[in-house]
Design a protein around this nucleic acid. Structure first.
Lengths: 242, 242
DNA sequence: CAGAGCCACCGAACACCGTTCGAGTCAGTG
DNA sequence: CACTGACTCGAACGGTGTTCGGTGGCTCTG
């Protein structure tokens, strides 16, 4: 029984098996062999340039100058590939050493880093939603956040749940922005509208929407970044009250 | 130039054109004609029973005893269908008349209703993420929430942004739960694990994760409902401080 | 050094998906 | 009655993730 893909995944989750002896295929070694590292690298390239929706197994295989089936020797699934990408993303998050006096700005910084990473690869947060809470790189980030909140003096239960809340919100925020940028880049002319257009539409609403009409300015105010820090502040303020 | 689907959509956004004269196709009138209403109804049925991932145009057409192409006379897109579903969902939300003294429980109730509707149709919140903020039924809910928060005495800017935060969180929460229930129903044996299994895995972590190991109990505590109301409380508490 | 077995590679195919095309069929109108 | 136009629907197109079977260098064994 040859090693099933699940076993490969299991093996990768364990200690990394160094360079896999660099075998060559029937191509005669003319091109560099396919490695998990190469797959992840070009996958990130595709997502960065064309968005997550463009990351298909076929597109990825073409970029690696091979066929789709060749990928399945190194990756179990598209889902597995997603998890690899999210793991790599999380591995690049810098976790500060917890400082009790600065827990608010520290947790904000970690969330901001997550947001920036997700936004650098538009749409990839969709993969983050499905990512396993088993992955070590992901747990590492959550461990870091937990340490910060605990150092800040929060009760453990609140800290534990708050991590869920915060990461979930960051994921959702970046997912929404990713969808919007996808529409911008990809047809759907009238989907993403300017602020002026929003104001016009709100003004054209029937009288059944008095508050929306009256506070149209507030509803459309601020950059998406403003909304992000507003919501984060909301949650952190709520936490501080615990 | 026959009416393009976009025009149908535009027409539907205007005043609803009553019963469309009940035309029959080549089937000779043996079966009930396809209407937008019938499409929405059976679509909800499919999602309720088999989850949003099972809602494909082909599956839907089969349920209506027709071919996929027949649907496109009533619906522009799958995206358009999604918007119809979300709109219908939002139309069923009951909006209380704002009471300044009870704004907290009122806003909590609306969010709870949204959560329940989304969870009744697992995975449908994925469609909610993409839904247009143009749809009248959706704006109606946001108008209701805005009225509650304003009655509560919140500054308009905070109220406006808070609506975004809250709905985004509810969407994200239900999306995550929907993904989990999808995995449960659909293979992926070891993906959704019990609390005991989670505790075992946390205990097996290397010493690099001290906080995660120490507070494994807190990290795995509570039902998903507990986490939902915790996060909502967090945001509302933060709001109350404004 | 000869042979065997492993396994990365890859072309072809399968079962789906959303969507389009064009012909066919009816109801209402002039 | 002929015409028009909305509706129906089988067939097909281009796309997706994934599987299968064979090939041929590689490495290890005898």
């Amino acid at each position: 029984m040859s090693p099933t893909p699940r076993e490969r995944r299991a093996a990768r989750l364990g200690l990394d098996t160094g360079p896999p002896a660099a075998r060559r295929g029937p191509s005669g070694g003319t091109k560099k062999p396919i490695t998990v590292e190469a797959i992840i690298g070009t996958a990130f390239g595709i997502v960065e340039r064309e968005g997550y929706e463009a990351l298909t197994m076929r597109r990825l295989a073409t970029a690696l100058e091979t066929g789709p089936s060749s990928l399945y020797a190194h990756v179990v699934n598209k889902e597995d590939l997603d998890e690899l990408l999210i793991g790599r993303l999380c591995a690049q998050i810098e976790l500060p050493v917890p400082d009790p006096d600065r827990w608010r700005e520290q947790i904000t910084s970690v969330c901001g880093q997550l947001r920036d990473q997700y936004l650098r690869y538009p749409g990839i947060s969709r993969a983050a939603f499905a990512a396993a809470p088993t992955n070590l790189d992901i747990i590492r980030v959550s461990e870091g956040m937990l340490a910060i909140l605990l150092a800040g003096g929060l009760p453990p239960q609140a800290a534990a749940w708050a991590i869920d809340s915060l990461t979930l919100y960051v994921n959702a925020y970046t997912l929404e922005l990713g969808l919007a940028s996808h529409r911008l880049r990809h047809r759907d002319d009238d989907w993403v509208v300017s602020r002026d257009e929003m104001l016009r539409r709100f003004a054209a609403l029937p009288g059944t929407f008095p508050q929306t009409k009256r506070y149209a300015a507030e509803l459309t105010a601020g950059t998406s970044d403003d909304r992000f820090s507003f919501t984060l502040g909301l949650m952190i303020d709520g936490l501080a009250g615990r």
